[in-house]
Design a protein around this nucleic acid. Structure first.
Length: 479
DNA sequence: CGAGCATCTCTTAGGAGATGCTCGGTGCCCTAAT
């Protein structure tokens, strides 16, 4: 199959006349039977890659997805397009529903599962009987980001894949450093030579990167100035749920902006409502923890502000990348206080098991559960499962901690540097950096001229809020 | 790699100084017994 024929299929199945950049090559690669890793910016239609390929291959497409809400969205989207042979197999189903679904797996075309579900014997037994066209790992960076200290079942994907007879595999994610790509391939038991890798661009020309040094006690005041000056909608990221709530309250008190907080303590209903309102432009600002954002595709986000710095540059880039999907100017603002970095470093070290605990665990061959942090628990479980010796275990933990520290230090460097922010990001992702946009970052030049470009967007948005003209007005002004 | 607050200690009644505690975020999965 060549590109022209693919276009015909695209038109036929989805009604699109052409592909978005970066979609064709991974599809062709899959259809040639090659395991494929594709890193594409979000919003470029990653799901179309497995959907179209899936239709052109015989058998069922299994999609490993990190979040229940993402599965729901994807199933809804497929059903909306008229595809009935799709379902999500997860804990939202009753036991009976699960059995019913499992019994007719062979009639499915697209089946969504969490990595945890693959640990279920009944599920695996059923999948083994099915002809698997394609094994897809969506948001594959979760393997690297969560596998070792949060959701360890992400590390077992390779074993599950093997148990399923090493089906043709596609891993997709928005951002992956060389290290993350390596983690993904290793976890999936894919040797680098046997995988076709496609990388999209990391650089986002329409984002202006800005860092502001702010003492913790001044953050709120500076924040209020910032959100009054910049056009909305925007996201403010926090590393504390309580602070996200507190600042939401402050914004409501001190401004006319419509704000809500979003984090794991909010009920499912609230989270759905808030996300929906934000997508519909019924909220100006979301104050969120890292719980917010995966799978969100809102084109007109004008700023992403970090009240605390994240743990790594990849997290930062992922969160900041949610701004300006429409291609219009937007800004990423990072509040930085040296104490934020030291605090995060200390927490990181606290999370990891001590040498004594490692030795105790290895020699007793069982977990000392009472005092374990989630990270300790995950790491120690891994050590026990893989039967590491005390020396190996200590080296393993130290290595992992050092990696995390290093990521944090690089984030700190990014925050503190006077060098070009864009360049640092590019290099971090292993990219050459060639062309600087006119308005680059706070190290390269003043934002004031860039702000001029914001003004139409801001005026359009406030107009829209005032007289409820909706999209027409804002679209006109954004052109 | 700090900072703010609460409690403790000493020694004798109001307070100084020391010590301890606390400060973080991501999500799957239905295991049990009335």
């Amino acid at each position: 199959m060549n590109e022209e024929q693919l276009k015909i299929e695209l038109e036929k199945r989805f009604g699109y006349s052409d592909f978005k950049p970066g979609q064709v090559q991974p599809i062709l690669s899959i259809l040639e039977g090659k395991n494929t890793l594709a890193t594409l910016p979000t919003g470029t239609g990653k799901s179309l890659i497995y959907q179209l390929s899936g239709y052109l291959l015989e058998g069922i497409v299994i999609i490993i997805s990190p979040l229940l809400s993402l599965m729901q969205d994807q199933v809804a989207q497929l059903k909306y397009m008229g595809e009935k042979r799709t379902a999500a197999l997860n804990s939202m189903l009753t036991a009976e529903e699960k059995q019913f679904l499992l019994a007719r797996v062979h009639k499915m075309k697209f089946l969504f599962l969490s990595p945890e579900m693959l640990q279920n014997n009944a599920v695996m037994a059923r999948l083994k009987q099915s002809k698997i066209a394609l094994f897809v790992v969506d948001e594959a960076h979760c393997i690297s980001q969560w596998g070792l200290d949060f959701r360890s079942d992400y590390l077992s994907l390779g074993k599950s894949r093997e148990a399923l007879g090493n089906p043709l595999t596609l891993a997709v994610t928005a951002t992956a450093t060389p290290k993350v790509r390596q983690d993904i391939l290793r976890s999936l038991n894919l040797s680098p030579e046997a995988v076709a890798v496609f990388e999209g661009a990391v650089n986002r020309d329409n984002i202006y990167y800005k860092t502001v040094a702010v003492q913790p006690e001044d953050k709120n005041a500076v924040l209020l100035d910032v959100i009054k000056a910049y056009p909305t909608p925007g996201i403010i990221y926090f590393s504390s749920k309580a602070q996200a709530d507190a600042v939401t309250h402050l914004i409501k008190q001190k401004t006319d902006l419509r704000a809500e907080s979003y984090h794991a303590d909010r009920s499912n209903e609230d989270r759905i409502t808030i996300q929906h309102q934000f997508l519909q432009d019924e909220l100006d600002i979301i104050c969120a923890t890292s719980a917010f954002g995966m799978g969100i595709n809102k084109p007109n986000i004008r700023f992403v502000l970090h009240y605390h710095m994240p743990n790594s540059i990849e997290e930062y880039v992922q969160e900041v990348g949610r701004a300006g999907r429409d291609g219009n100017p937007c800004i990423a603002i990072l509040f930085y206080a040296a104490t934020d970095a030291s605090f995060k470093l200390r927490m990181l070290q606290n999370d990891f098991p001590s040498e004594a605990l490692i030795e105790q665990t290895v020699s007793s061959k069982k977990m000392a559960v009472e005092y374990a942090t989630p990270t300790e628990e995950t790491l120690l479980t891994y050590i026990l499962q893989n039967n590491l010796s005390s020396t190996e275990a200590k080296a393993f933990v130290e290595n992992r901690l050092n990696l995390k520290k290093e990521m944090l230090f690089k984030m700190k460097d990014y925050a503190e540097t006077n060098r070009c922010k864009r360049e640092i990001i590019a290099h971090y992702f292993g990219k050459e950096f060639d062309e600087k946009p006119e308005f680059c970052c706070s190290s390269c030049g003043d934002e004031e001229p860039y702000m001029e470009r914001f003004r139409p967007a801001r005026d359009a948005f406030s107009k829209k809020v005032q007289d409820g003209w909706g999209k027409i007005v804002s679209d006109l002004f954004l052109l």
